[in-house]
Amino acid sequence: MRQFLTFFLLCGLVFSCSKDETALSEPQGRISIDFRHFAGTDSLLIGKVYYPNAAGNEYRVSYLKYFISGLCLYKNGRKIWQTKTPPISINAKYQDCLQAAFEQVPVGSYDSLSFAFGIVPEYNYHGGFEISNDDYDMYWPINLGGGYHFMKFEGHWRDGDEFGTFAFHVGAKENLIIHGFKLPLDVQEAQSTNIIMTMNTHEWFENPYLFDLSKENGYTMGNQGQMNNLVLNGQHVFKAKLQDF
């Protein structure tokens, strides 16, 4: 009896040191989303290659970082679950380890998901969630509403002899993009359901708004009109599929 109790206590301790301390009342699984970045059909290479956009300029990406937040799962048009995980940043520079993981997802089948490109209002203020040193650069000034940039997409363009820069910055609650996808998701106990989310950076420059970098300035900070164009184009940047093994 004594040994049994000691063993029992030790087990309890081992568990108490691990991070997930919530009592598992209902069976739970995990959803993980792998983010991948393409310029058209090519894998996006940061700082190296110029890619053609719809307006006929060529662009080279020097920086692409964004937040995603507020993952929700649905069934038959009804929201079943929303994550409590704080916003997650995705920096396209780290090609191979861009995984956003969501734990404690109730087991079950769902038919669609949505997430916010940017930071849902409950987190979007200074101190709204713990920001790492790496993501400190996403700060959004107080006098523009505070919180954090949803995206910094920066680079250089060239068109014949002309060249220049673009800095597509987006933030502020009116510019939050909600992405929704129909995907049959079968979340199983203690298993991970993996989704591959692919961003095509060409899409930021077209459909519906044709961004011609040689004709207009691509510095969007403080320019709600241009940010709105990005929000419109941004609706189509992602494609989602289930990872098949």
Binding site: Y63, T165, A167
Partner: peptide, 13 residues
């Protein structure tokens, strides 16, 4: 220069 930071060119170009 070709490597000038994008953020240095403001919205007036």
């Amino acid at each position: 220069s070709p490597s000038l930071d994008p953020v240095m060119i403001k919205s007036n170009g």
